[in-house]
Amino acid sequence: MTKRFGPVVAVDDVSLAIAEGEFFALLGPSGCGKTTLLRMLAGFETPTKGRILIDGEDYTRTPPNRRPVNMVFQSYAVFPHMTVSENIAYGLKMDGVRAAERRERVAEALALVQLEGLGDRRPDQLSGGQRQRVALARALVKRPRVVLLDEPLSALDAKLREELRFELSRLQDRVGITFVMVTHDQDEALALATRCAVMHKGSLVQVATPADLYEFPSSRLVADFIGSVNLFEGRVRVDESDHAIIDLPEAGITAWLDHGTGASETVQIWLAIRPEKMELHKRENGAAPPVMEGTPEGYNVMPGTIADIAYLGSESVYEVRLETGKMVRVIRPNLTRWDQEDFTWDEPVWLGWHAEAAAVLLQ
C-alpha cells in the first residue's frame, strides 16, 4: 500500500503479510507512517494505491463499520455517560444483536478482561488500567478477525503498563484473534509481539521476531532504534569462513569475530555491540589486559576511563571514555547487593567483548 497526503508520502509501497492469530507490532518513531498504516487497516483512511485483504477478501474500499476489525484507541474512547456494560454492549446494540445475547456476550467479555462485578460502574469510577480493559472488552465482544491497538498502554504509568503487558499477551493467546499494534515503545513491542515491523519514513526497514530484531538488526537504523547499542565504524582486514579481523579506528583496536562477514576490504562496515554484552575489568598498573572468551589474545579489548554511572536498581549503566575520545556504554546487572560499588567515577578500566557478541552491519 501507498498513502499520500498531497506531496507527502506517509506510507511508501508497504507490502506485508500477517498470519492468523499473530500478535504483530508496527514500531517506529513519530511520523514514520505506522499510525497511518493502522488507520488504513481500520478503514479510517483510504490507500492511494494498493489493497487490504483479510482472509483473502478485499476490504480496501469497505467502510469501517463493515470490516471484521475493531480498534482500541490510545485514549480508550469509552463513553463517560454509559456504564461499563453499556460501553461494551454498544457495538452489539448498533448491530441489532438481541438483548439476551448482548447480556451473555458482555458477561463473557467482562470475565475475559477480569472486570466481573464492575459492569454497573461508570468510567470515572475506574482506574486507568480498568478503563483500558473496558476498551479491550468492547473491541473483543464483537468477535472480530483483527483487533487494532493504537499505543494501547501509553497513557498508563510505568508499573501498570508493565503489568498490563503480560495480561494483554495472555489475553491475545487465549482468544486467538489477530492483534496488530502500533507503538513507539521498543520494550512494549519486544515484550508483546510475535513479530515486529520497524518503519522509517513510510517504508518497512525490517520485519522479524523480537529476538532477531534485537540480536540481528539489518542496519544501523534498526540497531540504534531497538534498545541501546555501541556502533564502531571499521574495515575488514581478514575475512575467512570461520573468523574475521576488523580494524576499528574509533576504538583504537582490532576486533576478532568468530565468523566471516562476506564484506569486501574496500567496504565500510559497522560493528554493533549491545551494552549488556560489553565487559568491564579493573585496569591495574602493569597488569596485562584480559583475554575475551573465544578470542585470541590482543583482540576485542580496549582501555578506557569511567566518565559516568547511573544506578538503576537491577542494573548499573556505565559511560566509558576510550583513549580515542569515543564514549561507550556498558550495562552490568547488579547480581549482589554490593555490585554497584565495584567501579567508580574516573576509574581506569578495560572494556571487552566475546568473539560472538558483535553484529556486522553493512548499512
Results as ranks from 00 to 15, higher is better:
176 G>C: 09
181 M>T: 01
297 E>C: 10
176 G>L: 06
35 T>L: 04
54 I>D: 04
213 L>G: 01
308 D>A: 15
319 E>Q: 13
214 Y>H: 04
178 T>P: 05
254 T>M: 02
96 G>Q: 09
175 V>R: 08
102 R>W: 14
22 E>K: 05
352 G>M: 02
104 E>D: 12
345 W>D: 11
257 L>V: 06
260 G>P: 06
128 G>F: 08
144 P>T: 09
122 R>S: 08
255 A>N: 11
35 T>V: 05
324 T>M: 07
308 D>I: 10
262 G>Y: 12
101 E>V: 04
306 I>V: 13
324 T>G: 06
296 P>L: 12
236 V>F: 00
113 V>A: 03
299 Y>D: 14
242 D>T: 14
167 E>I: 12
355 A>D: 03
217 P>L: 14
6 G>D: 07
163 E>P: 00
41 L>C: 00
35 T>K: 05
276 E>Y: 05
260 G>H: 01
173 D>C: 03
170 R>N: 15
282 K>P: 00
331 I>H: 12
164 L>C: 04
256 W>D: 12
105 R>I: 07
111 A>F: 04
208 A>T: 01
257 L>Q: 09
236 V>P: 15
36 T>E: 02
292 M>R: 03
121 R>N: 13
259 H>I: 00
130 Q>F: 13
143 R>G: 06
271 L>Q: 07
314 S>N: 10
208 A>I: 03
139 A>S: 13
188 E>L: 08
249 P>N: 11
146 V>G: 11
48 T>K: 12
58 D>F: 07
188 E>R: 07
53 L>E: 06
237 R>S: 13
39 R>I: 10
208 A>V: 00
288 A>R: 15
21 G>M: 00
41 L>P: 01
141 V>D: 06
2 T>S: 05
151 E>N: 08
15 S>F: 03
260 G>Q: 00
323 E>M: 08
24 F>L: 04
218 S>M: 11
19 A>G: 13
277 K>W: 03
86 E>T: 03
103 R>V: 14
243 H>L: 03
317 V>G: 06
114 Q>T: 01
289 P>D: 01
285 N>Q: 14
114 Q>K: 15
219 S>W: 10
256 W>N: 14
196 C>Y: 00
201 K>I: 14
102 R>D: 02
193 A>E: 08
226 I>H: 02
183 T>D: 04
54 I>W: 01
272 A>I: 04
215 E>T: 05
280 L>D: 11
248 L>W: 00
244 A>Y: 02
78 V>E: 00
193 A>V: 11
255 A>C: 06
174 R>F: 08
203 S>D: 01
143 R>K: 15
315 E>D: 08
121 R>V: 15
42 A>L: 09
139 A>V: 04
129 G>L: 09
45 E>Q: 07
207 V>A: 10
222 V>E: 01
150 D>S: 03
235 R>W: 02
217 P>V: 07
25 A>E: 02
257 L>K: 09
147 V>D: 04
292 M>S: 05
10 A>R: 01
125 Q>W: 00
232 F>H: 07
294 G>V: 14
142 K>E: 05
156 L>C: 11
155 A>K: 15
50 G>F: 01
70 N>R: 04
61 R>W: 05
19 A>V: 04
80 P>A: 13
240 E>Q: 15
230 N>L: 09
33 G>H: 05
186 Q>P: 02
